[in-house]
Simulated assay, not measured.
Amino acid sequence: MGADLFISYAWTSDKHREWVRLLAAQLKTLGFDVLIDADVDYGDDLNGFMRRVGDSRHVLLVADRNYVERADTMPDSGVGKENRWIAEQYAGHEAAWLCVLFIDNHGCTLPAWFDGRMPKGFDFNHSPDSLQQFPGAEQVEELWRWIAGLPANRDSATPIATLRQRATRLEQQELRTELSQWRSPDLEGQTHFEYLDAPGNTFTWGFGDSEFGFHVSGCGNDSVYVYKDPITAVGVIRSKQAGGAGLARHLTQGRTVTPHVGQSVVLMNEHGRLAVVDIIKVQREDTSGHEYVAPFVDFRWQVVESS
């Protein structure tokens, strides 16, 4: 299947070309696959590009007065060739396949080959005496509803502004839960970890046999629970001891430990490697105020080389 939309227009002026390309860019931003001559690479066959009109789901003629004149009187021009091919395809498609956008064409004149047929049209004409500015949000919405095959009656439709807000929320949530946001390849580092946003409340660092998962949940005002689930064992370091062998003595048999701010935790992964985590700051979840405060833990980690 071809593109969602093929746009046919005349190179009336630099200003007009820029207007049409901006319109195409807006439709692309909304998620449509749009074919326009600006997408043709140097050296490509423009005639071949224009013949793709028959494979497109929809065709839009941007009909200013110059476009209509070229279609009617200049058969060897780009507009003339496109209109010849479009006219050949028109009879074999449903009426909704083609629409005309009128701009700088207040009489809404059509090329002669339409011969009395009245396709759907979008009036983007602008009068200097009018307070309206085109294209406006309402006109662009009518255009994309046609491309998407939605009914023109929008009584039960969701406003485009609301759809954009929803899309923004979905993208922001996707970014928060993206795994790459919650891991680091470094063997030593520091992070601010809002753990409720992370999959499994887990931050991962390292790689290979030096990879560790730091799984936490809220506990007290200055403490968190640290779980052994993504690794093998955890423990709170009760006194400073050098070397991997000394750190291993602090590992416990239980599922969790509860370090406080200022304390350190030792982790052992499935390969027997050790890492030390220093708890720097803790914030509990707070729903009592006007604004929600997300829980977090600031910590520093280091994979112990001698382990």
Score class of each variant (00 low, 15 high):
A71L: 13
C99Q: 11
L23A: 07
V297C: 00
Q173L: 03
F6I: 03
N201C: 02
G262F: 11
R145F: 15
I7Q: 14
F134S: 13
E138R: 10
H290Y: 14
G220R: 00
G31E: 09
F207A: 05
T29L: 06
Q165M: 12
P295N: 00
I86A: 13
L187C: 10
V261W: 02
P75H: 00
D39Q: 04
G262K: 13
S288N: 12
I7S: 05
A10D: 09
D55M: 11
H250N: 12
N47A: 10
L101D: 08
T12G: 15
A152Y: 09
R52P: 03
Q302G: 08
H126G: 13
H126L: 11
P185V: 14
A242W: 05
G220I: 00
L274W: 15
P128L: 11
Q132M: 10
Q253P: 13
D55Y: 12
A294F: 06
R51S: 00
A148W: 14
C108I: 06
E178C: 03
T232L: 04
L46N: 02
I86W: 12
W205L: 15
A3R: 12
G262V: 08
R238W: 09
Q190L: 03
G254L: 09
S8K: 03
I280A: 08
I280P: 08
R169K: 10
L179S: 14
S156D: 14
T287H: 15
A63F: 10
M74N: 05
Q241K: 13
E178F: 13
D39C: 03
I160L: 10
R17L: 08
K240A: 14
E188C: 08
S77C: 01
A198D: 02
G235E: 06
